[in-house]
Design a protein around this nucleic acid. Structure first.
Length: 975
RNA sequence: GCCCCCGUAGCCCAAUCGGCAGAGGCAGCCCACUUAAAAUGGGUUCAGUGCGGGUUCGAGUCCCGCCGGGGGCACCA
């Protein structure tokens, strides 16, 4: 700083002093504490809980604290929610704004392995960096509501919720809970109610034997078929390079791990699953009742992938002389007459029972794969398919391979024999794992029919211009679709579907059905740094919940917490849980409360995925110190219970699902965290623990702040901060150099390896936190991606400096405002600004709010004196974005804390104009402007416009055909 | 291949219902202050809205077709 800088100029240095002072004061005074109506913090006398006062829960997706700390992109959403929370406090609402940490997970474990420290130590360090940075930029989180997912008290309730889910089953016939907005039956119920129904015979036990005759282990196995959290040996995604199994949502389309980009293999492993598929309908339907970005709702709908169609039975003889029923799922039952062959997945369980000893007479050479018998052909094909990784299947593209099973099924509508093929383009995990192939109307089936010389029957009339050599997947009248009992000929696709389903149901050959792309959620991981399952196994191999008084089950210390990883493509490796190494911890005795007394047990050694902690943290913010429940029901109902009014675009008559009022976070969680959390929340709703049906009522995806990357001639990134720009004189594009060498510019993410990271710490140091906040908020709409440009930050600093100077003399530090009454023009400008800024804040249009405030501030700057009555409301308006500066000015202006000072009210009388400038157009082009009274009548305005000299000149005597008048602003004359 | 989002000054962005293309910021240029520079203050230049059609009295905004950028899904029967 030069000695010539005025002593009281709003510099980064002064800003820093002001900011630290107010941060200390807010902390000391507990300024941002919100009021709870019940639970351990009940404060019913708090005025904010009075009738008619609003309440709002505002939150961000909590961070996963990495050792590197935040760069300027991370706090974008945090600043936006902070601005909104601060604004809402000035409207009198009880505002809950809190932040915690998502602290379990693989990166923390990796980082810990690298640094040789326990993950808890490195995680705590990272969290304290984040806390420092969040305090530094003035986020108004409520300190007493913070926690981390690794806190034992939090883990205790995560484990408790797991047990609730484990001890529940989904009854598709059960009535929804009262108050629910569900349109169809279905609800989770306690598993004890299922046991009662089995025991008293009101529900048949699968397998047919009476419940009492089943052994403990047999009963457990039956219940596993119902529990919402269960152990299954189904094929799962095994990632040897990470040493853990992964959920479908964590595997990319090309069969690699989302984290680390390593190969993933399908393996049959015994793992914990969550029965999220039971909620598929509600998870799809209830999206309509949420105020979420359309693309996120679309992504969830696609992920759940509900499709309606029919299940149809094709009879097929078995090798033992009997008859089996090969069930297929189709979305096009109207094309059943064109089903000329069938395809089953290589893993289909029926394959073993239908493959004959010898090739039947009609077998074509191309069908056998060169094998002497069907059994050999099928076995060879199965082996070949199993050895293929998903990556290989991908690279093979759409070329169809397969082999004839030797079996002929019967098309139930035509009675014709159809050959059954085994091919890997049919997936065991979708539908029934078997399809009826209709080459005439399906491209994949067409390709297969072509490759294996199979007949094609068109059952939908193609359009005249449709090529002969392609499947026709469009709409058209049915053809070739009749038997003695039913005819679809001439019907459109929808009508044909309806008629054939009716016939199938009448004759017992099939039924309408719904199928989903969504699979159950694989919930166990082979890693150390996660929540231990609150589960032990007894000597019968039965899983038991750890009794409630022994929660939380805490992580044991192990000699080596690193996951056991393997060569990335070692598909045959076996997962190995790090907790299994803590043998003293694993083998213990426990009284399971079933009358047996203490028995030897083995602890579950898998841990939960890190999604577990983020599935319910928003609930814990509401009541973080409750020792009796995850959240007091009265507290939950107050904060996030259903509202009277629905979200803006909810369907007519919908019931509001409740949930957090504003949730801001990245779109990368569209089908992971956001789907999982919705699922848990619905289970908790069904079991009566919460009154809301959804966790997040309104969601906004904040955009990402990106940055330019500069590369030298070798393509290596150079430090972006040291690059010099050279503008060209002829208006062409700029060139860039680093240390005299030419470098290229590209646009991308901010990252350490790209040498373009800018940290909030640097920005606060150079400009102050308020300037940093104003800059981030003025860059554009919250949802937008935008490039960071450090040299542009000075614009925000100038704004705050000018505001400061409008109140405080830079040389003396004296407050200079006057008590004069603002001129009518200034008063109008002020009230228009108040009106616009208020609605902009409410709608989270902070960028335009800031532009309005700059405009008003520039107006004040031009004046010789600044009236107190004009600048005080401006200080209040600026407070959400620049809270420290505003608090300081507010105090210097002679007031107390402004956190809860009511937002300025616009005087409606000052919003209306006495006169306006009306535009007169001739044929849509502006030809004149005239000042008219704001309440001028259409007829008067038209007369004025037609009388305009300029207009007459442009009309040039041409007859007027039509005059469009939009009083008082516009007239358009058409000739 | 299918689906979704976005293209407005050199750059970031405004423009409630279809009604004057410009609120705000950066950069550039000019001026003041300064021995000078920085900082600060004042002023100012700059686009007809990616391209081509259409609807309309009137289109950045609505419709159709392209082009470019970003994202999601991808043998899902």
């Amino acid at each position: 700083m030069s000695e010539r800088t005025p002593e009281h100029r709003y510099t980064a240095e002064l800003a820093g002093r002001i900011e630290r002072r107010w941060q200390d004061r807010w902390e000391r005074d507990d300024t941002f504490a919100s009021a709870n109506p019940a639970g351990p913090w009940a404060a019913p006398e708090d005025p904010r809980l009075a009738d008619g006062r609003e309440h709002r829960v505002v939150m961000d997706m909590f961070p996963y604290p990495s050792g590197a700390g935040m760069h300027v992109g991370h706090p974008l959403g945090y600043v936006a929610t902070d601005v909104h929370a601060r604004f809402l406090r000035t409207t009198g609402a009880n505002v809950l704004y809190a932040m915690g940490f998502d602290a379990f997970g693989l990166p923390a474990e990796h980082y810990a392995v690298q640094t040789g420290q326990h993950p808890r130590v490195t995680t705590e360090e990272a969290m304290s960096t984040y806390r420092r940075q969040m305090r530094m930029i003035g986020l108004s989180h409520e300190p007493r509501r913070t926690f981390a997912t690794i806190d034992p008290d939090y883990v205790r309730w995560t484990q408790w919720i797991f047990q609730q889910i484990h001890d529940a089953w989904y009854d598709p016939q059960a009535d929804p809970r009262p108050g629910s907005g569900q349109s169809a039956p279905g609800r989770a119920r306690p598993i004890s109610e299922l046991v009662e129904e089995f025991a008293d015979g009101s529900r048949e036990v699968p397998g047919g034997r009476p419940w009492g005759e089943l052994s403990r282990a047999e009963q457990a196995r039956v219940l596993d078929g119902y529990r919402l959290a269960y152990v299954s040996a189904a094929p799962v995604n095994w990632c040897p390079g990470l040493g853990t199994v992964l959920a479908n949502e964590e595997v990319t389309a090309d069969g690699r791990s989302e984290r680390g980009d390593l190969p993933v293999f399908k393996r049959n492993l015994s793992q914990w699953m969550m029965r999220i598929t039971s909620y598929a309908d509600r998870l799809t339907d209830d999206l309509d009742r949420l105020d979420w970005p359309e693309r996120v709702r679309l992504m969830q709908r696609h992920w759940i992938g509900r499709s309606t169609g029919a299940q149809v039975a094709f009879p097929v003889p078995t090798t033992t002389g009997g008859e089996a029923s090969l069930e297929v799922f189709t979305t096009r039952p109207d094309t059943l007459f064109g089903a000329t062959f069938m395809v089953v997945a290589p893993e289909h369980p029926l394959v073993g029972r239908i493959v004959p000893d010898a090739w039947p007479a009609a077998t074509k050479d191309a069908w056998t794969g060169g094998a002497p018998t069907p059994r050999e052909a099928v076995t060879a094909y199965q082996r070949q398919a199993a050895a293929k990784s998903d990556v290989e299947r991908q690279t093979e593209g759409k070329a169809k391979s397969g082999v004839f099973s030797g079996a002929w099924a019967t098309n139930p509508v035509t009675g014709a024999p159809v050959p059954v093929f085994v091919a890997d383009y049919v997936l065991m995990g979708y539908g029934t794992g078997a399809i009826m192939a209709v080459p005439g109307q399906d491209e994949r089936d067409w390709d297969f029919a072509l490759a294996y010389d199979l007949p094609v029957v068109r059952t939908v009339q193609p359009t005249p211009d449709h090529p002969e050599d392609q499947a026709f997947t469009g709409e058209g009248p049915a053809i070739n679709s009749a038997n003695d009992e039913v005819s679809l000929d001439g019907l459109g696709v929808e009508d044909a579907k309806e008629r054939i389903i009716a016939w199938l149901e009448q004759t017992g050959r099939g039924r309408a059905t719904v199928t989903y792309r969504l699979r159950d959620w694989l919930f166990s991981r082979q890693r150390y740094w996660g929540e231990p399952f609150p589960v032990v196994w007894d000597e019968d191999g039965v899983a038991h919940a750890v009794p409630d008084d022994q929660l939380p089950v805490t992580l044991p210390d192990v000699p080596d917490y690193a996951p056991r990883t393997f060569e990335a493509d070692d598909a045959d490796s076996e997962p190995e849980a790090p907790l299994a190494r803590a043998t003293d911890w694993v083998h213990t005795t426990m009284d399971l409360g079933d009358g047996r007394g203490p028995v030897p047990v083995r602890r579950e050694t898998n841990t939960m995925p890190n999604w577990a902690g983020s599935c319910w943290y928003y609930l814990r913010y509401l009541d973080p110190e409750n020792a009796a429940a995850p959240v007091d029901p009265a507290v939950e109902g107050y904060w996030i219970g259903p509202r009277e009014e629905t979200v803006p675009e909810a369907p007519e008559g919908a019931v509001d699902p409740g949930g957090v009022d504003l949730y801001v976070g990245g779109v990368e969680h569209a089908v992971l965290h956001l789907l999982y959390a919705r699922f848990w929340h619905k289970v908790l709703f069904d079991l009566g623990h919460v009154s809301s049906e959804e966790p997040f009522r309104r969601l906004i995806n904040q955009g990402m702040i990106e940055a330019y990357v500069y590369r030298d001639a070798r393509g290596f990134p150079v430090p972006a901060a040291e690059v010099e720009e050279h503008t060209s004189s002829d208006g062409g594009p700029s060139t860039f150099t680093w240390q005299g060498q030419p470098v290229t510019q590209e646009y991308g993410k901010m990252g350490k390896s790209l040498k373009n990271v800018v940290t909030p710490d640097e920005m606060v140091e150079q400009f102050g936190a308020d300037t940093f906040r104003v800059y981030e908020m003025s860059m554009g709409p919250l949802e937008q991606y935008r490039p960071w440009e450090t040299r542009a930050v000075v614009g925000s600093q100038r704004f705050l400096q000018r505001l400061w100077r409008n109140v405080v003399d830079e040389d003396t530090g004296e407050v200079t405002v006057t008590d004069e009454t603002p001129s009518p023009d200034l008063a109008k400008a002020l009230h228009r600004t108040i009106d616009a800024v208020g609605s902009d804040y409410a709608a989270l249009r902070t960028n335009t709010a800031i532009a309005r405030m700059i405009e008003l501030n520039n107006l004040l700057t031009k004046r010789d004196t600044v009236p107190r009555a004009a600048v005080e409301p401006l200080v209040q308006m600026v407070a959400p974005v620049a809270p420290h500066l505003a608090a300081e000015l507010w105090e210097r202006l002679g007031h107390d804390d402004l956190t809860y000072a009511p937002f300025p009210q616009a005087d409606p009388a000052l919003l209306v104009e006495d006169s306006v400038t009306a535009v007169v157009q001739v044929k849509g082009k502006v030809r004149d402007r005239i000042d008219v009274a704001a309440d001028i009548s259409a007829a008067d305005l038209e007369a004025l416009a037609l009388g305009s000299e300029k207009v007459q000149r442009f009309l040039d005597g041409a007859p007027v055909r039509k005059v469009v008048v939009r009083a008082p602003s516009l007239v358009n004359i058409v000739v």
